[in-house]
Write a protein that binds this DNA or RNA. Structure first.
Lengths: 149, 149
DNA sequence: CTAAATAGCTAAGCGCGCTGAAGTATAAAG
DNA sequence: CTTTATACTTCAGCGCGCTTAGCTATTTAG
């Protein structure tokens, strides 16, 4: 198998994923009045458990003022909780509320729902092949370090 | 292999793809002053070769007024060409300019660049495994019909 | 104790993206 | 030919997301 043929297969697969997943993901977000940035903030908060305002801003590539304003809206929507950090009273700890967690999980489900349809059409041997490949890929992705922002 | 184990592997893989691809994709878009909607419009135009204003709006889930205004900006940026449809002079034909094509291709490359790093770490036998899986998945995805908007 | 650095909030201002309403031009239906 | 439908544009108006500048409170360094 030639390398560029391999690359183009990967490309086609990514294309398909993006097309279907992003569509459903964005549709879900919109229906709940959430922007891409909102979801990004919720994701980051979910990933790191508890984080600061500036940190979220850096993650999204915006100023801390922008992050503060956006979080204010998320707080009002009861998606995140903003409390004082007892160890450093200048800082705030942002965590997901129950509602925030629920919304995030639903967004993930929306993103992945179309894959369930795909999965159901696979035979057992096909699933074996695919899962062998996934094991390899996931291991590689996990050891990737994202370049600095 | 249990079905839910399989699903969770797919989920983890999607998670990785989204995390890495979207990050680079959005960063590229931002650097070029393009929003998600802009890219969506460019993608759609690329996919269908030539399309109408309302059609693009429907694809993005916005009114035709919104589409018209957004396309106006894309025209000014020389990313798309807007010309009268000779077969129906009410309608406009939107096509990508050279510059629009270039930008789109670069966005795709940005989206996929991290995968090249992954690919390079794969042995030949691993590539075989992965490409066998991709063949299966791509075939399934291609015969998916997206539910109506 | 004082000075500098840090975390966050607030305010003013700008452009974008969206909507609904109104308008123009063309096409299709009667 | 007249009416209705379609494709698009324009305009006014609204809220969002962003930036910069300036502010408070707290921590850290000297």
């Amino acid at each position: 198998m030639q390398d560029d043929a391999f690359a183009s297969m990967l490309g086609e697969w990514i294309e398909g994923i993006m097309h279907h997943s992003m569509r459903r993901f964005l549709r879900y977000a919109r229906a709940n009045g959430l922007s891409m940035s909102h979801l990004g903030a919720l994701f980051h908060t979910h990933r790191f458990g508890s984080c600061g305002v500036t940190e979220i801003g850096e993650h999204l590539g915006v100023s801390s003022a922008a992050a503060s304003q956006m979080l204010e809206r998320l707080v009002k929507q009861d998606l995140v909780l903003r409390s004082e950090d007892p160890d450093d009273r200048r800082a705030k700890r942002i965590v997901l509320t129950k509602k925030g967690q629920r919304i995030l999980e639903e967004a993930l489900r929306a993103r992945q729902s179309w894959l369930n349809d795909v999965t159901q059409t696979l035979s057992d041997s096909e699933k074996k092949t695919v899962s062998a490949a996934l094991k390899i890929l996931i291991a590689r992705v996990n050891q990737l370090t994202e370049p600095a922002d």
